[in-house]
């Protein structure tokens, strides 16, 4: 059993979990829900985007710039694999 280092990181796993449920979420929503600073969140989003696990889109609502993040298909698969691995790890450790 192996874990993807990009996904198997607390903050990035949290981001991907939120996006899996949300479909799409913007930067302020993610920052508020996850309790991260702008810089910290931005770095994790860039890491996920560079790995092809999320796509980041920028636009405007009125005059307000908005940054949105959304999981890619690869991101969904990676998240599913990560969660399956964790459940398997828990099961194995609990069996002793």
């Amino acid at each position: 059993m192996t874990f993807d280092e990009v996904v198997h990181q607390r903050a990035r796993l949290a981001i991907m979990s939120v996006l899996a449920e949300a479909g799409q979420a913007d930067f302020p929503y993610l920052r508020k829900l996850l309790g991260m600073t702008d810089g910290n969140l931005g770095r994790h989003l860039e890491t996920l985007a560079a790995a092809g696990l999320i796509v980041i889109s920028k636009g405007y609502h009125g005059n307000r710039p908005r940054t949105w993040a959304e999981l890619t298909s690869a991101g969904r698969r990676s998240l599913a694999a990560e969660l399956a691995n964790m459940r398997a790890l828990i099961a194995r450790l609990e069996q002793g």
Partner: peptide, 26 residues
Amino acid sequence: PGTRNALPDQPDDAALAAAHELTAQV
């Protein structure tokens, strides 16, 4: 590349607690 063994250099109890915490957070 980009992967590592799931059983890190920590005791099983700590690994189990960490895994539970992560799944609960999710």
